[in-house]
Amino acid sequence: MQFTSTEVIVIIILATFIFLLAPLFLLIYIGVYNVRKKKDLEEKRNMQLEFESELLKTQIEVQEQTMQTIASDLHDNIGQLLSLTALTLSSINLEEPQKLDKKISESIDLVNSSIKELRGLAKLMNGEFIVQTGLGKAIKQEIDRLKKIGTYKIKVKNELLDFEISSPNKDLIVLRLLQEIINNIIKHAQASHIEIEVFIINDLLNLIVKDNGIGFDYEAAKTKNKGIGLSSIHNRIKMIDGKINIQSKQNNGTITKIEIPYP
C-alpha cells in the first residue's frame, strides 16, 4: 500500500493530535480527581465538627440530667429529712426528760439518713465524669435513679459492670441514649414494668429497653419528628455507626434495641 504525501501529512497531524490528547485527558482526570478529593476532605472535616458539636451537646445534656436529679433529690429527700430533723429538734421539751432520749435518737437517725442521701448525691455529681469510671457503672447509676422514683418494677441485666475496655465518646452517647429512652418512658409511656439489658457480643454493644406502657405509633412519630426526641436518638446512633430498632404498638409496650460497634 502506497501513501501519498498528503495522506502522510494527515496521518501525522491526526497521530500528533491523539498523542497530545492522551496527556491532556490524564491532566483533566487528575484535576477532577483532585477536586473530588478536596470535596471529600471538606465533608470529612464537617462531619468531624458535627460529631464534636453533638458530643458537646450530649455532654451538656448529661450534665443537665444530673443537675435535675440533684435538684429533685435535694428538694424531695434531703430537704424533707432536714425539715423533719428541725421539726423533731424544735419539739424537744427539756421539761419532759423521758421523751428527750427518743427525740434526740430520732434526730440522729434523720441526720444520718441525710448524710447517706448527700453521699449518694455526691456520687451522682461525679456523673459528669462518669464515663471515666466505665459505661457499666454509669448505666447502673442511671438505673438507680430510676429505681429511686419507686414507680416501676425494674429488671436489669447489666453485663458491663466488670467490662474494662471503654470508648469515652461512645460511652457518653450511649449513656445519653439510655437517659433519653428512660425519660421518654417516665414522661409518656405510663408503664409499670421496665426491663433493661446491656451486653456485648462480637464487638457489638447491645442495649435493650422494654416497657409495658401504652406504646406509640413509631412510624407516625418518626415522620412527625417531634416530642420524644426520636431524631436526636437516630442522629446520635448514626454518628457512631450504630443501629436502632423500635417495636411499639398502641397499648402494647415498647421495645427499643440499639446495636453499636464497640469499643
Binding site: 501513501f3 504525501s5 502522510v8 501529512i9 501525522i12 497521530a15 500528533t16 498523542f19 497530545l20 492522551a22 496527556p23
Partner: peptide
C-alpha cells in the same frame, strides 16, 4: 509523549517523503 510521533516518523519521512 507528543514527540513520539516525531521520533517514529522522522526517518521514514526523511527517506520516503522528503516533501512531507
Amino acid at each position: 509523549f507528543g514527540s513520539t510521533i516525531y521520533n517514529l516518523f522522522i526517518y521514514f519521512l526523511y527517506q520516503d517523503f522528503p516533501k512531507s
